[in-house]
């Protein structure tokens, strides 16, 4: 059974149709990349999958681990093992990263029927995971994403992913705003989390990220539809020729 099965997905935001029938099947262990120009529907897709209520699914189906995603609210999707790394992680003043993570980890553990981590156990897990994305100690004490640099925010997203251990992770333009060093650190973190059970959907505008997170499949998204799918070499083709050829084809 596919981990994530997207069938003829249509969606709109503010009454504007953005996704026009997307089909995509991701098996456990696979890394899929979706590439597309601005306005192609990349962010809409990630928001619809994560359950953002500002986006409305108007047609089609999405099955996650066999369950109909449209039946689940955002927090239920997260508890079921779906994770979205935000393109623009939200700053939350007044709550430390640590406190926030503990609440998130325990909400998900409770759902899985696992016992809540006490303060010491939680610190052990933190120690273990923070090496993955080389996150600085002081960022854990600071308010969630508040005053973080672009790179620190993205690292924090991957750190959260490591802490929450999802079955399926969607990375929404995680490369945007990153310099090459930050990109490498984030990619290393993601690669360390690749496993035969876990699926990834990497959404990006540029091929650069895919040099570091090498996908099994690449899909081209134009005007809310996947117009071409292929192996990792498709990313290079796009890099060379741009999206223009596909944009014509999609009309």
């Amino acid at each position: 059974m596919a981990l994530l099965e997207i069938i003829e997905l249509q969606a709109q935001v503010e009454e504007k149709q953005i996704l026009n029938g997307i089909n995509l099947s991701i098996q456990p262990g696979e890394v899929h990349a979706i590439m597309g120009p601005n306005g192609s529907g990349k962010s809409t897709l990630s928001n619809v999958l994560a359950g953002n209520e500002s986006y409305e699914q108007t047609g089609g189906n999405v099955l996650f681990d066999g369950a109909d995603l449209s039946e689940l609210d955002a927090h239920e999707r997260a508890r079921a093992g779906l994770f979205l790394a935000f393109q623009y992680p939200v700053e939350i003043a007044g709550i430390s990263n640590m406190y926030f993570l503990k609440a998130a980890v325990n909400a998900i553990r409770e759902h899985r029927g696992e016992k809540q981590l006490d303060a010491m156990e939680f610190l052990d897990v933190i120690e273990d995971k923070k090496k993955l994305v080389k996150i600085r100690e002081d960022l854990l004490e600071r308010a969630v994403n508040s005053g973080f640099s672009g790179g620190e925010k993205k690292r924090n997203e991957i750190f959260q992913m490591a802490m929450l251990e999802p079955k399926m992770a969607i990375l929404d333009e995680t490369d945007s705003g990153l310099d090459i060093d930050a990109l490498r650190i984030v990619a290393d973190g993601v690669n360390a989390l690749r496993s035969p059970e876990r699926g990834f959907l990497v959404i990006t505008h540029y091929q650069r990220l895919l040099e570091y997170i090498v996908p099994d499949f690449v899909h081209v998204l134009v005007n809310g539809r996947i117009v071409k799918s292929g192996g990792k070499e498709l990313a290079l083709e796009l890099e060379e020729h741009g999206y223009e050829a596909f944009e014509g084809a999609a009309v």
């Binding site: 994560a50 359950g51 953002n52 209520e53 500002s54 609210d73 955002a74 927090h75 999707r77 997260a78 508890r79 994770f83 979205l84 935000f86 992680p89 939200v90 939350i92 003043a93 007044g94 709550i95 926030f100 609440a103 998130a104 909400a107 998900i108 759902h111 308010a143 959260q160 929450l164």
Partner: peptide
Amino acid sequence: ALFYLQTRGMDPQQAHGMLTFA
């Protein structure tokens, strides 16, 4: 921000409570 917290597993009531406290 409410959506962000919910994508991290917190139900709407928890998310409201945490953001209000924050």
